[in-house]
Nucleic acid binder design. Structure first.
Lengths: 143, 143
DNA sequence: GAGGGTGTTGCGTACTGCTCGCATTAGGCC
DNA sequence: GGCCTAATGCGAGCAGTACGCAACACCCTC
């Protein structure tokens, strides 16, 4: 089921004149295995576990390439760092400022807002690319 | 009408054991004059026009102090820099990714969303502190 | 109005997240 | 297998921000 997904993504890279390198294969593999939202640093670390000589800047460049193909996306969590994730299904991000946890909310939750913003302000909400900051249930309760 | 506002803000600083320095007075004055959302750099530049020896790090520290008092707030616009603004009335930020323009939308627009997020995910949306990315009417049309 | 305690500042430095230039390596079409 | 060129490793560099420290200046007190 997911063996094909790796190949499908690599095919997309190839189709755009890209080459399949070990670094890219490793990165995509990690991305497919990961269900959390991870920073470029996290990814570098994970990739380097099996391929120690993959450089952080390579990770960034691969992520850039994948992003241009619409395979991954990144979201800025407010304070500097960004997290990357596969664009399998469109969703928005609820980021807990206390613990950093990212909740995924399906697009529909934001649809009414998007509609209202378009109607009132002519503003087109860009899906998937903004993080709603706040605090998750646990952190709201505990703190 | 706004002469009093400057003093009121400075009073808040004083009330919290803070001191009123020329740098702080200048910064707050600029903030009161500015209706746009500005970066720390913009503010530094503006302050330095009248007080050339105010250091950028002073700006950051003053903004920090003002933020702790709930007088100003900052929003991250996605790619690194943050913009600061007075917290006169609660509002959310619609940021155009193309031109960087910031539209202010009153809190009510986001209220239904906040309610839904709380109900469905136990997630408390933090008001004023997240930017909704997208594109403004002009940029949507032009590009 | 002078003195003193301490909050604030200027300056330099450092850090983080990310980008870029360049020489080298290696993918993949022939 | 060879060649062209995309991709990589590496280091340097950059923007935005935080911080440590000594000097300064606000403002309370007398």
């Amino acid at each position: 089921m997911d063996g094909g997904r790796l190949e499908r993504i690599l095919d997309q890279l190839r189709a755009n004149g890209g080459r399949i390198t070990t670094a890219r294969r490793a990165l995509v593999t990690i991305l497919l295995e990961t269900d959390r939202h991870v920073t470029a640093d996290d990814l570098a670390e994970a990739v380097q576990r099996s391929h120690p000589d993959v450089h952080l800047s390579t990770i960034y460049r691969c992520l850039d390439a994948l992003e241009e193909l619409g395979i991954v996306d990144h979201v800025h969590l407010g304070h500097g760092r960004a997290v990357y994730h596969l664009l399998d299904q469109p969703h928005q991000h609820l980021v807990c400022e206390a613990c950093g946890y990212v909740i995924e909310a399906p697009d529909e939750v934001f649809a009414p807002l998007a509609k209202k913003l378009a109607a009132d302000y002519g503003f087109t909400l860009r899906p998937n690319h903004f993080a709603a900051l706040g605090s998750c249930a646990e952190c709201s309760a505990g703190d």
